[in-house]
Lab assay of single mutants.
Amino acid sequence: CHSECLGNCSQPDDPTKCVACRNFYLDGRCVETCPPPYYHFQDWRCVNFSFCQDLHHKCKNSRRQGCHQYVIHNNKCIPECPSGYTMNSSNLLCTPCLGPCPKVCHLLEGEKTIDSVTSAQELRGCTVINGSLIINIRGGNNLAAELEANLGLIEEISGYLKIRRSYALVSLSFFRKLRLIRGETLEIGNYSFYALDNQNLRQLWDWSKHNLTITQGKLFFHYNPKLCLSEIHKMEEVSGTKGRQERNDIALKTNGDQASCENELLKFSYIRTSFDKILLRWEPYWPPDFRDLLGFMLFYKEAPYQNVTEFDGQDACGSNSWTVVDIDPPLRSNDPKSQNHPGWLMRGLKPWTQYAIFVKTLVTFSDERRTYGAKSDIIYVQTDATNPSVPLDPISVSNSSSQIILKWKPPSDPNGNITHYLVFWERQAEDSELFELDYCLKGLKLPSRTWSPPFESEDSQKHNQSEYEDSAGECCSCPKTDSQILKELEESSFRKTFEDYLHNVVFVPRKT
């Protein structure tokens, strides 16, 4: 048989008469490798580009789960590009990614509803959504962080984005990388972005840091009482949809009607710091009717980097990364020049730590249904340095008659930039024990000054392991946590139920 035959053949030295091919099969003959313009397919066939392209389009058009959109890589027609490569849609070739590779997620039936953290986790790592997304989240724990972890990498949506009755959302900033909504599939009414009845939605994105392009379709905003109209108009300008909307697409009466839409800028007039305090004062603000001013709200939190936005980490279910302080308005003076500047002394802060701070007014709604208010920009203030805590785990070892090696770990709280350490030492008198000992005694162990690591005695271990207080009263049991108490109650309830079950099964009433 021919060298490319495997198993047997019907005619000697003829690659077209093989029972099976050793390498690849091409047009009725066995070959060692697939010549151009053919590609290896499933490690035994040679196919042309049209064959591989037909497989790709067949799966793409069917949208069946589990099928493969075949691509070409290293002269092979394979189910998908290997790690580190992405497909070129024009020629199906796998090309190296520039940075992290995109991950295209194809949605069944063309859309997916995100109504819980669990459903959001199914899209973790996706960068391109081939379909439409509907966000409908009523509640949950730590929602802002969970949504950002699972949806934060999405850069492109081919269909539309719909935010509907998501009472738990305060902001859409968890879509931190969303840059493009194509609108290839539109919501009824030709809408590519749809926001309806979101009672706590206050911000779409921080438009000073976020760009969003909507290729096709219109915007729809109705019944978002805490979303200011200025935020919607800003989205029109940034996304390129200005002029597409009709009169009733953006409701003037049901958007922002319960919001404090600040239209003035508060400026800080005085800032002073110490290692654990920050004193702030800002310019006074009074609405047209000074009785509408209820006070100020001061927001602050630790910020290692200057990239904080107002609604980071917030949701309507209680999660809030900001510390909020309510401040009463100052006494009002008739003389504008003698107006008191409101302020606040922030206490209990960490030394040498940068804080993000902003302040906003708290006002009631005027009778004319106009909203007044003022808010400052987010500023960054760093507390002063102070003395560091003591170095940890000092170790001293003498390696000769004239040297001592000293080692330690950095302090747990540096409280500033540590530039150097101060080492103090003092000579001590020799131990009298060394002169009084009889060095001729056998088995004498000389006193040693070398360091030995501390260890816990058996008594201390027994005390720590004991669940009861000892007789001397030195140790006591740790208080039980809520989960331990709940577990004990469940076990007790189970024992009672099981005992009742045994009584009912074992003891049967005697027939009379």
Rank of each mutant, 00 (worst) to 15 (best):
I154S: 01
E146V: 06
L227G: 00
N263V: 06
F221L: 13
R332P: 06
L153C: 15
L147S: 02
K350A: 10
G159R: 01
L186K: 05
T386S: 09
S319R: 15
E122D: 08
T118H: 11
F221G: 03
K407F: 04
V390P: 13
T383V: 02
N150V: 04
L186F: 04
R291V: 10
S166H: 03
D276A: 07
H341C: 08
Q306T: 14
T241A: 14
A168T: 12
L107Y: 05
L212N: 01
V238N: 12
V397K: 02
S171G: 13
L204M: 06
E283I: 04
D367T: 08
C228G: 03
Q199M: 10
C261H: 02
F290R: 07
T353P: 00
L123T: 03
N263D: 01
P394W: 15
I232N: 00
A303P: 01
P287A: 02
F299L: 05
K177R: 11
L331N: 10
M346Y: 01
E122C: 05
T323V: 12
G295R: 02
L133K: 00
G140K: 15
L280M: 07
A120F: 05
I278L: 15
R347Q: 11
I379V: 11
K226H: 15
D312Y: 14
K360N: 06
K234R: 13
L151W: 10
F365L: 14
V117Y: 02
R332N: 10
R347V: 13
N150C: 10
G159N: 04
Q382D: 03
D249L: 11
E236L: 12
I135Q: 00
Q203D: 04
R202S: 08
Y270S: 06
L280I: 06
I181Q: 00
A149H: 14
Q121P: 05
E283Q: 01
A251V: 13
L212I: 13
T254P: 08
E237D: 14
G373Y: 10
M346R: 02
I404G: 00
P304V: 04
I214W: 10
W282T: 04
T118F: 12
R138H: 09
A303S: 06
Q245A: 15
G343R: 07
L161R: 01
K337T: 07
K253E: 11
R247W: 13
E262W: 09
D367R: 05
T254F: 10
Y191F: 07
L204F: 07
G140M: 10
D393E: 13
L151P: 00
E231N: 04
T353Y: 06
K242N: 11
S158G: 05
Q121W: 15
G373D: 11
C126A: 01
G217R: 02
R179F: 12
S400C: 12
E368S: 08
S119A: 02
N255A: 06
G152C: 06
W207L: 07
E187M: 07
Y355P: 00
E283G: 03
Q258F: 04
G373A: 12
N224A: 01
Q203L: 14
Q306V: 11
H222T: 01
R281H: 05
N334R: 14
N320H: 07
A144V: 15
Y300H: 12
A316L: 04
W286N: 05
K242P: 10
K301G: 04
N307R: 03
K350M: 04
Q306K: 14
W282Y: 01
Q339S: 07
G189Q: 01
C317L: 06
D292K: 01
R124F: 03
A374S: 09
E184V: 07
N320V: 01
P388F: 01
L147Y: 04
D384F: 02
P410L: 08
G343F: 04
F275S: 14
S338Q: 11
N263A: 03
L180V: 11
L153M: 06
D377V: 08
I129C: 14
R179N: 13
L196F: 03
G343E: 15
D289R: 05
P329S: 10
C261S: 03
K337Y: 12
Y372N: 15
I278A: 14
D289V: 06
E237C: 04
S158M: 08
P410A: 15
I134S: 12
K267R: 13
L227K: 00
L143V: 10
K407M: 14
P351A: 10
P351E: 01
R332V: 11
T386Y: 04
L252G: 05
T241G: 15
R176K: 09
K360V: 11
D206S: 10
H210V: 06
F220G: 13
Q339A: 14
P329W: 09
L331H: 08
N255T: 04
D377R: 08
L204T: 13
N141T: 07
L143N: 06
L331D: 10
E368R: 14
Y355E: 00
G373T: 14
S158L: 12
K103R: 11
E155S: 14
I214H: 02
R179G: 13
S171L: 01
L392N: 08
L153F: 07
E310W: 14
D367V: 02
K226N: 10
P342I: 12
I214S: 06
L151V: 05
S119W: 03
S173C: 11
F175T: 01
W205A: 02
E156A: 12
I157T: 01
K234G: 08
E237N: 05
S402H: 08
A251H: 14
N211W: 09
S398I: 09
Y160F: 08
L252E: 03
T383Q: 00
I114H: 00
S171H: 14
K234V: 11
W207N: 05
R165A: 04
F220N: 12
I271M: 06
W207K: 03
F174G: 02
A303M: 04
S230T: 03
V381A: 01
Q258V: 14
V359S: 02
N307H: 15
I327N: 01
T213N: 03
L266G: 01
R124H: 15
K162P: 00
A259Y: 03
G217M: 01
Y380G: 03
F221A: 15
K162G: 12
A149D: 06
I135Y: 01
G125S: 06
S208I: 04
N248W: 11
E231S: 14
Y160G: 12
R369W: 09
L229I: 14
I154V: 12
Q121C: 07
F311H: 05
N334H: 13
E146L: 06
N248H: 01
S376W: 00
Y300G: 01
S173H: 14
V128E: 01
T241S: 07
M346W: 01
N320C: 05
D312F: 11
T127F: 06
D377M: 11
L172I: 15
S401H: 09
L204P: 02
E187S: 07
L153N: 08
L107V: 09
F296R: 00
S333L: 12
K277T: 15
R176T: 13
V381P: 02
T113D: 15
E283W: 07
A356E: 01
G348W: 14
V104K: 04
K234P: 04
I357G: 01
A251K: 09
L266Y: 02
F221M: 12
S398Y: 12
G343I: 15
R347C: 09
N130E: 08
L204V: 07
N334I: 13
Y305L: 07
W344K: 10
L151E: 15
E262V: 08
K277M: 05
L219P: 06
E368F: 13
V238R: 15
